[in-house]
């Protein structure tokens, strides 16, 4: 066992009476109160706030244009530049999903289609957004770079069924991802 000595601050008698420090603390909170009522809160600019305090009044004003590039919202499926469904329904995302939000029903690609070498594509792909915790494990585990966390953050289903997104919705959300993957190219 290693002992790590922690240096405690020495308190003066004034600190130990507590009343003075208490008054100073009350002063700080009062300053915040007044500033936020006046609409002059610190870091208001950074948050792009408009109302009282540093907050962005939500439905009128949205994050859409201010989201950082690394923001991770709802997961979505993507298509390749050639329009190919990138997902091959290997179900690794379903396996890794800690919240068990993903449900994949595997299916096969029609033999005559342009990407028939891929053989397999999801017949149905469902993500239950009530279960999803936006951890990004699905994106990390995907061997085909087919699932990404989009920047969508506004998810307001009005019933449980609506919260489950099916394949079409996920592809619509994901759109097309740049960059060709030649793994399933049958002419290469």
């Amino acid at each position: 066992m290693a002992y790590i000595p922690v240096k405690r601050p020495k308190f003066s008698i004034l600190d130990r009476i507590y009343v003075v420090e208490l008054v100073r603390g009350l002063g700080i909170t009062l300053k915040h109160l007044v500033l936020s009522l006046l609409g002059k809160s610190r870091s208001k600019k950074d948050f792009n706030g408009a109302g009282i305090g540093a907050c962005m009044p939500f439905p009128e004003q949205r994050w859409d244009d201010h989201l950082p590039s690394y923001y991770r919202g709802a997961p979505a499926l993507v298509r390749g530049e050639d329009g190919r469904e990138r997902c091959v329904s290997c179900q690794l995302c379903e396996f890794i999903c800690p919240a068990r939000a993903i449900r994949v029903v595997p299916g096969s690609v029609a033999p005559g289609s342009s990407c028939s070498k891929q053989e397999k594509a999801p017949a149905e792909f469902e993500i239950d957004m009530l279960r999803c915790i936006y951890c990004g494990m699905c994106q990390e585990v995907c061997p085909e770079q087919a699932i990404f966390l989009s920047q969508q953050y506004l998810i307001t289903p009005t019933d449980r069924k609506q919260a489950v997104r099916n394949k079409e919705q996920l592809y619509r959300l994901g759109g097309i991802r740049k960059g060709l993957i030649h793994k399933w190219n049958q002419f290469k």
Partner: peptide, 10 residues
């Protein structure tokens, strides 16, 4: 809310 730079329930 005000103390924490928020609007509070408004």
């Amino acid at each position: 809310g005000w103390i924490q730079d928020r609007p509070g329930p408004n």
